Amino acid sequence: MEKHGPETYGELNADVYDEWHDIDPTEAVRFLAELIKEGPAGPVLELAVGTGRVTIPLAAEGVDLRGVDASEAMVARMRAKPGGDQIPVTIGDMADVDPGTDDQFAMVFVVFSTFFFLMSQEEQVRCFDNVARRLLPGGRFVLECPMPDVARYDRRQRVEAHQVGLEHVRLTAVRHDPVEQRFEGHHVLITNDGIRLAPAFMRYAWPSELDLMARLAGLKFSGRWGGWHGEKFSGEGNYVTVYEKPAAPVS
């Protein structure tokens, strides 16, 4: 952990990220594009743009997109894809919400489980504060987060096999710290050529905790769904939450 920073995950996972997380962005792009049409006019900022899984197709819809990411390796992967080199990206900590300009945004969003890569409550609160500062009145902050499933961990740990082939095995090995609300783990790829470790450390937050962070930042709760299809939130799996910056401060 002493060498772990905001860029660590991306720098060590960029070359396998798209293969290991092959997730169709279609519904996320549709959801975000429709929400953008309902909000104020202005550019849109994605935190932790990664390899451009959502950024590139959303920009193709005509959205004026900017990005922030801590990992130069992940951004290089995005820029190598068709359309990826047309999206301005600043290398930096997403908690700073600093795209390198003074722009105010109609929307700021972060997808998958990436918000939880901010490793302390302080960093997560700072991110909310900076998002609120950057949003236009009526602008939205959209987060996709996994619901913490702490029941999966036996004696605060879990090993799970994701792929098993004739010449490779891919596992995850995770330890759970319920006091700090942290998962500290590795993707472990074992092949005939050796062993590869890809660390993934997260600080999870419960939906009610996120709602409090938003309120402290002056944002109001707008809605929560069980996914990008707009289904009812069941308390399981990945869910989507929308917060809005009101014209007047939240009381």
Rank of each mutant, 00 (worst) to 15 (best):
E2M: 07
K3W: 15
E7N: 15
T8A: 07
G10I: 04
E11M: 03
L12W: 05
L12P: 02
A14Q: 03
E19Y: 00
H21T: 06
I23R: 08
T26Y: 08
L32Y: 01
A33Y: 10
E34D: 14
L35V: 12
G39W: 10
A48E: 05
I56V: 15
A59C: 05
V63M: 02
D64N: 15
R66G: 00
V68P: 02
E72D: 14
R79D: 13
R79V: 11
A80D: 13
V89H: 06
A95R: 12
D96W: 15
D96C: 15
T101L: 15
F109S: 13
S113M: 04
F117Y: 13
S120I: 00
V125E: 06
C127D: 04
C127L: 07
D129L: 10
N130S: 07
R133S: 13
L136F: 05
G138R: 03
R140S: 12
V142Y: 05
E144V: 03
P146E: 06
D149H: 04
R152W: 07
Y153M: 00
R155A: 12
R156W: 15
R156L: 06
V159I: 15
G165I: 04
L166D: 12
E167L: 10
E167D: 14
V169S: 03
R170Q: 08
R170W: 11
R170G: 10
V174H: 02
V174G: 01
H176T: 01
E180G: 02
Q181N: 06
G185Q: 09
V188N: 05
T191F: 08
D193Q: 09
L197G: 03
A198R: 07
P199T: 00
L210E: 04
L210C: 03
D211M: 07
G218P: 08
G223I: 00
G223K: 03
R224F: 01
H229D: 11
F233R: 14
S234N: 12
G237I: 12
T241S: 10
E244W: 05
K245C: 09
P246L: 09
A248S: 02
